[in-house]
Amino acid sequence: MTEQRRDILDMLAEGKITAEEADQLIAALDRGRPSVATASDLRPAGKPKYLRVEVDTTEGGEPGRVNVRVPLQLLRAGVRLAALIPPQALVKANEELGKNGIPFDLTQLKPEQLEELVEHLGDMTVEVDQPDAKVRVFCD
């Protein structure tokens, strides 16, 4: 039994989720397993160079596809550029985020932390599967 499956069953035993929700979570876990393996199989060996965002949708019967490729170098440069933002602007941005229900303090975010985040993006794969849309974010 995997750790995630045990967590779901624990939550069910503790009454945090219903049996139906547990069933859905386990089904999602089973669905997710082969697709994650597929994503990592597709990733070429070596250091990733690009952040890829792929979105497949079928809205109103018409298929739509978005395929964005951003060099990771651009993200690193963007992080350095963001480090130049004056503190006054960050305070204003914090206020606006707070107004929109996102209590996030941008002044606490250090450029080194962001660079570390970009460095480890290569290990990340996000896949969202919905009946009418599929989103995949990964690095290659």
């Binding site: 018409e62 596809r65 395929n67």
Partner: peptide, 16 residues
């Protein structure tokens, strides 16, 4: 640096 790092960017959008 930001400008130079733009090389390799690709945005492809299909809608119908």
């Amino acid at each position: 640096r930001f400008f130079c790092a733009l090389s390799g960017t690709r945005v492809d959008v299909h809608e119908g």
